[in-house]
Design a binder for these strands. Sequence first.
DNA 1: ATCATCCATGTAATCGATTCCATGGCTCCG
DNA 2: CGGAGCCATGGAATCGATTACATGGATGAT
Lengths: 338, 338
Amino acid sequence: MAGIKDVAAQAGVSVATVSRVLNSHPSVSPDARRRVLAAVEVLGYRPNAVARSLRTDQTRTLGLVVSDVLNPYFTALARSVEEEARGLGYSVIIGNADERPEQQDHHVRTLLDRRIDGLLVSPADGDSPLLTEVARAGTPMVFVDRWMPGVDVPVVRADGHRAVQDLVAHLHALGHRRLAIIAGPAATTTGNERVEAFRDAMRTHGLALPDAYIGQGDFQADSGRRVTEHFLSLPEPPEIVFAADNLMALGALDAIRARGLRVPEDIGIAAFDDIPWFVHTAPPITAVAQPTGELGRAAVRALVDIVEGRAPQSVTLPARLVVRSSCGEDTVTPRSNA
Amino acid sequence: MAGIKDVAAQAGVSVATVSRVLNSHPSVSPDARRRVLAAVEVLGYRPNAVARSLRTDQTRTLGLVVSDVLNPYFTALARSVEEEARGLGYSVIIGNADERPEQQDHHVRTLLDRRIDGLLVSPADGDSPLLTEVARAGTPMVFVDRWMPGVDVPVVRADGHRAVQDLVAHLHALGHRRLAIIAGPAATTTGNERVEAFRDAMRTHGLALPDAYIGQGDFQADSGRRVTEHFLSLPEPPEIVFAADNLMALGALDAIRARGLRVPEDIGIAAFDDIPWFVHTAPPITAVAQPTGELGRAAVRALVDIVEGRAPQSVTLPARLVVRSSCGEDTVTPRSNA
DNA sequence: ATCATCCATGTAATCGATTCCATGGCTCCG
DNA sequence: CGGAGCCATGGAATCGATTACATGGATGAT
């Protein structure tokens, strides 16, 4: 592969001049520029990003570590992140933690070894010594969606409080009183927050939230299935199961169907995270939708702000409720328990 | 950040010795090794992968360019690719082409600039001069799922002929005769192949496949919607719509539902590519399933074979039919899998 | 006409690793 | 006892770019 020396030789100038042309340095004669450009064209020369990075100490690359790529929410996030980054002249390397802290650490380390300019993380676990250390060391870093308390790093996330209030109001209006939640891992901030938001909303509407109606999941479909089976075997099963993420909602759907029950007639379902597929499930699922695209874009902007020496901003965007039919019809034939 | 020089100083040896320890070169005294390791520990030293790559001319990184990350099929593929690569000591950088040739080229170029060791591509378009050139230049490269005819590069893919035969047999047994297909872009190999497989299967079963029943899609949901609307407005609409990928199937479902029709009573749906969500749609969708995980793993192995100087192997794995209820209940034909 | 600027360019140092080669000390064997 | 061979080690070249500094020529001001 042709190097800068070959270009210099071909153009009859020094490597310095070639470099200047390539980096649009002002002090280059039109003639030299023309010859260099021609040589570049002829040789099909492309600068070696590795060498460039070594010298300039910047890779124009961002790392994104998500907890689970198979989760459509994170896929969508990754996509918007890459898009915004590309617009700003950065590439993105994605690391998939698969909700496993040690795999998350593996990717963080690999990314750091590559000398990425900044790191975007949605931590799988509540407490990663490595991540804490990395943040303390001053590596440009931003949390997206989930974050780690006590780590002083900008956070870009959605606030679901309002939307969860709306959800419970909606369910209440439909006549439902016994609402259960499948929580995420207690170690994740989103796990806790969503339960808290739900608890608050229940209180607001004067509804009880017994411990038996709080199931412990891990953001994977299987746990949704398991918890829902447990709910269904209770002496008094809930009327609604609210899953803290889309995968667990799917598991819940499975469990319900396995029992031969119907949604929403026998039991209703709602989920945190809205994904395109929820429109096509049987029935379409009511969900709390995050502004995923905007989240990804804001996160990249914050990170690049740090990288380029500007002051970054934590951002919190509101989630909103999307009512479908998985908890019963809203306008048509309201169900009543009375 | 501590460099190899700092480690050398701390350990009281030369950088050469540090490097030897790090690369487990035999000629290092136990004493020196111990001191170097201790210094590495104390300083929290991590080798700079950029510098190392420049010197050794290898990045231990593979590039993966997929046509659309939002498509669960490719997400799953990407995941298995990363997994296998990690096992072999490689990282993966994913580039999302979004079915746009110029974006695909952008990623290929960026990846090459980064001096990745090898490239895994599922070409968005049938004819990329850049990709042709890259292959000719001898860059280690393997096609996954889709490929480009005339480019001499190993291909790892699934063969759907048998499964499509099974599908048509299944539909025929259910009494369906008017089967339509939503094809992928003619420029992609998978686009053509699937139509050909379908055409063959129709012939085998003595069924006609009028041109009106071959709709042109682009692997995106919207096109599935559009084509299906067209099908439904025909004087004699098809009884079954077979979509050449999962996204278009979703679009088809939308279009059908928008018309107030029911699946499978009024019209049936089947799709190429099986994804977890098809179990949860209304109704669950009959699909041709590719061995995605094995595809990704085989592709990585082939690519790494090239990179490390072994002889690579093209691989074709069989797809299989997964019968669900979107084409009508099937009591006669036994399910093809457990 | 003289000197200070400024511009275009080249030479060489540098980034952080790997690795070839030289060296000095040992061991081994004839 | 002397040379051959081996081992552990260090010095220095190298990978392909960027960039500080030096240089020589042209321009402009006085």
